[in-house]
Structure formats: structure tokens, C-alpha cells
């Protein structure tokens, strides 16, 4: 299927915060109450539409355990977006955000868009982290923020799509070098320029780039 852009994402965060469930909800629109442990990385993909353009999302869901960090780190490179997930019912997963953020910033390209996600918002009665705390952390570190529930699907679409919108805007602003695949962005086959690289002129890619 043709697409205007391909964005690569990575999902990170402590083990058991619901990373795989978020991905499953987003790609398959279903919730699996018990999800087996993610070993290393798992891959998922889905097409979305932004500004009338088809955007393909390729998502690496990573294992949260420290032991796998040396493997999962290599996936930061080449990601345009990251979902940094914590569990609103477990304070420690929120406390570890700084470490995750440092790790992400250190190993990713500087333009990577990071969305902070407080997951399990359906478990209000067990909440340990206030929404305001998440918002404050996001503000302080320049992240986008949302609370989601992989179980009820609340805000799951939005989390992935808003991240894509942010990346898309950065492309429009010319922040991303879209010709460097290491940034986690690829122009779709029908849209890529045939010869030289396009100047970063807004929605240049939408014109079809002159090829088939």
C-alpha cells in the first residue's frame, strides 16, 4: 500500500506498564488482559492518516527489563518518535522516568519526538501518580503528555497519532532531514523525489515528487 511517509517509533518504559498492550490496542484494536513478557523487541505496524496523507507507522515495542537494555538501546537510533510509558498505579514506574529519558536522549537523534504516557487510567481507584504530576514532568522536559488506557482504548489512538502529528509538523518546519533514514522517517515510494533531494519546502512530498 502506498504511503506518503513512514515513521518509526519505539515504545519504552518499565516492565509491566502496558507497552505491549498499548501496541496491541493500537494495531489490533483489542486488549489482552494478560500479556506474556516481551523478550528483546517486538514489532508492530499500522497505517494512519494525517492531513489527508497516509502515514505508515512501524513500531518497536521493547522489553522493559534492565537486562535487555543493551539490546533495546540500539532501537533508539532510527526512531522518529518514542512513547515513554509509566503506570499510574505504580509510583516507581514514574520515578524511573528520568533514567529512561536520559537513556533515550543519549541514544536517539536529537529531534526525536517523545510522548509521555501515563497508562492504566481505567484503574482510578489504584492511582498512585496524579495526572498533574505527569503533566508537570512533561512540561519540565519538553514532552507531550497523555493518560491512556490500553484496556478501554481511551486516548490510545490519540497517543500514537498526536506523536505522528508532531513529527509531521517538524517535517513541515524543516527540522527533520527526511532524506536521512537514520532519523526514523522515510518518504513513501510514490512520493520520493527521483533525482536530488527536495528542499524542505513544507508539504513538498504531497505533490508526488514527480515520479510514478
Amino acid at each position: 500500500m502506498s504511503y506518503a511517509y513512514l515513521f518509526k517509533y519505539i515504545i519504552i518504559g518499565d516492565t509491566g506498564v502496558g507497552k505491549s498492550c498499548l501496541l496491541l490496542q493500537f494495531t489490533d484494536k483489542r486488549f489482552q488482559p494478560v500479556h506474556d513478557l516481551t523478550i528483546g523487541v517486538e514489532f508492530g505496524a499500522r497505517m494512519i492518516t494525517i492531513d489527508g496523507k497516509q502515514i505508515k507507522l512501524q513500531i518497536w515495542d521493547t522489553a522493559g527489563q534492565e537486562a535487555f537494555r543493551s539490546i533495546t538501546r540500539s532501537y533508539y537510533r532510527g526512531a522518529a518518535g518514542a512513547l515513554l510509558v509509566y503506570d499510574i498505579t505504580r509510583r516507581d514506574t514514574f520515578n524511573h522516568l528520568t533514567t529512561w529519558l536520559e537513556d533515550a536522549r543519549q541514544h536517539s537523534n536529537s529531534n526525536m519526538v517523545i510522548m509521555l504516557i501515563g497508562n492504566k487510567s481505567d484503574l482510578e481507584s489504584r492511582r498512585e501518580v496524579k495526572k498533574e504530576e505527569g503533566e508537570a514532568f512533561a512540561r519540565e522536559h519538553g514532552l507531550i503528555f497523555m493518560e491512556t488506557s490500553a484496556k478501554t482504548a481511551a486516548n490510545v489512538e490519540e497517543a500514537f497519532i498526536n506523536t505522528a502529528k508532531e513529527i509531521y509538523e517538524k517535517i513541515q518546519e524543516g527540522v527533520f532531514d527526511i532524506n536521512n533514514e537514520a532519523n526514523g522517517i522515510k518518504i513513501g515510494p510514490q512520493h520520493s523525489p527521483t533525482n536530488t533531494s527536495l528542499p524542505l519546502s513544507g508539504s513538498g512530498s504531497s505533490q508526488g515528487g514527480g515520479c510514478c
Partner: peptide, 12 residues
């Protein structure tokens, strides 16, 4: 704690 969290998730 980690093992305790993980085991119920095993081979659902």
C-alpha cells in the same frame, strides 16, 4: 518483586 510480577504473565 520482579519475579512476582512476571510469573502471572507467563504463557497466558
Amino acid at each position: 518483586r520482579q519475579i512476582h510480577i512476571d510469573i502471572p504473565r507467563m504463557q497466558p
